[in-house]
Design a binder for these strands. Structure first.
Length: 768
DNA sequence: GCTCACGAAATTTTT
DNA sequence: TTTCGTGAGC
């Protein structure tokens, strides 16, 4: 047996060694799904399948990167770089660069993120003389998105009886019209939104048999991760691509389907067996992640859902602690409880910051945790706020690059035409837009031909100067790389200088962000492969396309020792030693927006299932009697999901109803009936995604070495190992750097923070 | 064309 | 409570 097959359990082995024909892997939470996927890819290659013929699709860049890395590790060579591993969006964006011309798009089409897309909708709504208060971009946008994900064209949308009735009932009859206008505007701008990356890929395959043939024979082996989250477009694409060879392997867990609001249909996984003859089904039911108590609770709660794929998740792990249910008076008390408990657990059970995650239903809940953690000096990072690339100054700067690459990109053009100020005012811009619409030409062409349209001399000059500048940047493209062009943009437009001279705090931050952006472009240029593995294409166009598909979860500083705060959605696929699920209250979790139908409620329950199964050893569920929402105090009942958990796995001693004790809990957290403790008005710091407490002073918290302290041989020391230092105490290796002769370990000590230790001199005892 | 002040809306989840 | 957009005024 090959080495890489060792250590797989029986169903895992079965899945990995199935080579030809359709395969469905039902992978319970924590059942080694990624291991199976990556090992299977390695196995395919070991059996002579060319890496160029394998396609693996995921939902997040992170999952894709991890997969690629692990395959590379198993194989021990660079063959893995030829694999097509990436998110649906990034892989299709890459293919569309080569194919979009068939549909009339430029190869350098722009990718609109949600903000861009909403902004186009707003423009279009106004141009149609509709009220954008009533036709809110978000509402309209999600209708359009749903239509696209269901493969519905504007014409079909307008003719669909059910849809039209829905829109009439909501008093928004013009959405069909807006959809049509939006689609043609995006096309005119040479731009695709996120949904288009899927939809246009589908159209290419559907309408161009030679393209379909090409990719069917290129991707002889297809794997799809998180199949329960695929939507109809993704489903159809997969079906088309797999039609010839039928070597399609899907992996998923119907119990973790949590993206129906984004068009995902759980039916795809439930029906997979009917789509192909002779589907092999493998169930991975052994959980390697969590304690017995956690698994039991998760199983019991999810049982309340109907129509699942039958499965029995079990574990050999220890029974573990009971799940702790905690009730507090207010959301602030909830924050304080969590921060206190983290501190206590760190001391008592030797956890590091990074072993903790605080999970919540909505991003807005992060505030109370931020405040308490900061007050306790516990470093944390919030995932899923505004991504770096969505910040205004970054988007403004990128807009230049976008226009240089694609002058038809009107969204970008409007951002920069008068930034920095160059005397092209609102009136002029409006006039340009109107002319562009009348003549049906791109707005940039109005600028280049400004002389024809009777602008005043001063305005005309300003417009022409702008065009000249853009043309100059474009002329650099042939000989300069993306970074050099970006630097020129920063210089020539005066953006960098202007921000540099702005000495306010925000100005300083903006300046730093631009510098960071430039650095990241440079880094990208120098990296061997792009995110999705496209080697060699370092053009500015390629850079822009992949940048739009990045989220802030992707630039993960995996090694930093911080508590992680994120929504449950963002936590899918991750695991932590200790998990707090916060705000387990009716109307918050399950969300008040999602309790109107059985389907919605079941999705909330699956979300709860996902939350619970993130925990390895310890799990807390917290809820507050009252919390601030819209600045108003509201009272919530405990979540119905709490009632669905069997008592025997729950420790309710902090939940109010049970025996109360003398731990001081009541005083600290308000207990029953106490007036909601309004905290003294703390000067509110701007919410930053990351907080690192000031470096601890050089004062060392004394550590008494263990009685059996013997220095270990540290020559094979690796990141992740736990060690004891005679003076600094217990800690975990973060990284080993330095040369072979003089290795330096970065160690995160529990009591003394992060230190760099020279291994040639220090005496360390390896604990694990 | 920019700044300030006021009022209204916001909170479900995201590639 | 905070953020965002609008409109008046400079």
């Amino acid at each position: 047996m090959q080495d890489y097959l060792k250590g797989l359990n029986e169903p895992q082995l079965e899945a990995v060694t199935h080579i030809n024909g359709p395969l469905m892997i039902v992978a319970g939470a924590g059942s080694g799904k990624t291991k199976v996927l990556t090992t299977r890819i390695a196995h395919l290659m070991a059996h002579g399948i060319d890496s160029f013929n394998i396609l693996a699709l995921t939902f997040t860049n992170k999952a894709a990167a991890e997969m690629k890395e692990r395959v590379e590790k198993i194989l021990g060579n660079t063959e893995a770089r030829n694999l097509y591993i990436g998110t649906f969006h990034s892989v299709f964006a890459r293919l569309l660069r080569a194919e979009a011309h068939r549909l009339g798009y430029p190869a350098n089409f722009t990718i609109y993120d949600t903000d861009d897309s909403r902004s186009v909708i707003k423009t279009v709504v106004n141009e149609l003389n509709l009220d954008d208060k009533h036709y809110k971009p978000n509402i309209v946008g999600s209708r359009i998105s749903a239509a696209k994900n269901a493969l519905m064209t504007p014409a079909e949308y307008a003719l669909d009886h059910f849809i039209q009735q829905e829109d009439m009932r909501a008093n928004r009859p013009a959405i069909a019209q807006i959809y049509a206008a939006y689609a043609s505007r995006c096309f005119k701008n040479g731009a695709m939104d996120f949904d288009d990356l899927l939809l246009k890929m589908y159209e290419v395959l559907k309408h161009f048999p030679d393209a379909l043939h090409k990719y069917q024979h290129k991707f002889k082996y297809i794997m799809i991760d998180e199949y329960q989250d695929t939507n109809p477009v993704q489903y159809q694409i997969a079906k088309l691509l797999a039609a010839v060879h039928e070597n399609i392997c899907v992996v998923g867990d119907d119990a973790q389907s949590i993206y129906s609001f984004r068009g995902a249909t759980i039916e795809n996984i439930l029906q997979f067996q009917k789509d192909y003859d002779d589907v092999k089904v493998v169930k991975l039911e052994q959980n390697y992640r969590s304690s017995k108590n956690i698994i039991h609770v998760a199983n019991e709660v999810i049982r309340n859902n109907k129509g699942q794929i039958p499965k029995n998740l079990w574990t050999d792990n220890a029974e573990g602690d009971k799940i702790r249910l905690v009730r507090t008076m207010t959301d602030n008390d909830e924050g304080r409880f969590v921060a206190d408990t983290i501190q206590e657990q760190k001391l008592r059970n030797h956890y590091l910051n990074r072993d903790f995650a605080i999970l919540y239903r909505t991003n807005a809940q992060s505030r109370s945790f931020e405040e308490s953690l900061r007050r306790m000096g516990i470093p944390y990072r919030i995932y899923g706020g505004v991504s770096f690339y969505q910040r205004k100054e970054i988007k403004d700067f990128l807009a230049y690059l976008r226009v240089i690459i694609n002058t038809k990109d009107e969204e970008a053009l409007k951002r920069i035409i008068n930034y920095p100020v160059r005397g092209i005012g609102k009136t002029t811009i409006e006039k340009c837009v109107i002319i562009a619409n009348e003549q049906n030409i791109p707005m940039f062409d109005v600028l280049t031909r400004a002389a024809e349209f009777g602008f005043k001399a001063g305005t005309l000059e300003a417009l022409q100067n702008f065009v000249t500048m853009i043309r100059y940047f474009q002329s650099l493209l042939t000989e300069k790389n993306a970074y050099d062009v970006a630097v020129q943009v920063g210089k020539h437009t005066n953006i960098v200088k202007e921000l540099f001279n702005d000495k306010t705090t925000e100005g300083l931050a903006r300046y730093e962000n631009i510098q960071e952006l430039l650095n990241s472009i440079k880094e990208w240029i120098e990296s061997p492969a792009n995110e999705d593995g496209e080697v060699g294409n370092k053009s500015l166009g390629a850079y822009l396309q992949q940048i739009t598909l990045l989220t802030d979860a992707d630039d993960d500083k995996e090694n930093s020792d911080v508590v992680k705060l994120m929504t449950i959605h963002a936590a899918k696929g991750l695991e932590f030693g200790c998990v707090f699920v916060a705000g387990v209250e009716e109307s918050l979790f399950p969300s008040g927006m999602a309790i109107n139908t059985r389907e919605e409620l079941e999705e909330e329950r699956r979300l709860f299932y996902v939350a619970v199964t993130r925990a390895k050893q310890r799990l807390w569920l917290t809820y507050a009697n009252s919390r601030y929402r819209f600045g108003q105090l509201v009272q919530n009942e405990p979540s119905r999901f709490i009632d669905e958990m069997p008592e025997q796995y729950i420790d309710k001693s902090y939940a109010g109803g049970g025996a109360r004790n003398s731990t001081g809990f009541d005083q600290r957290f308000g207990g029953f009936g106490a007036a909601p403790a309004r905290k003294a008005p703390v000067s509110r710091q701007p919410s930053k995604p990351e907080y690192l407490p000031p470096a601890p002073p050089n004062k060392v918290v004394e550590h008494k070495p263990s009685i059996d302290f013997v220095a270990s041989d540290v020559s094979a020391l690796q990141a992740g190992q736990e060690v004891e230092h005679q003076k600094f105490g217990f800690g975990r290796i973060v990284a080993i750097e330095g040369s072979n002769h003089n290795p330096i370990a970065t160690i995160q000590f529990q009591l003394n923070g992060e230190k760099k230790i020279m291994l040639n001199y220090a005496k360390l005892r390896i604990v694990e």
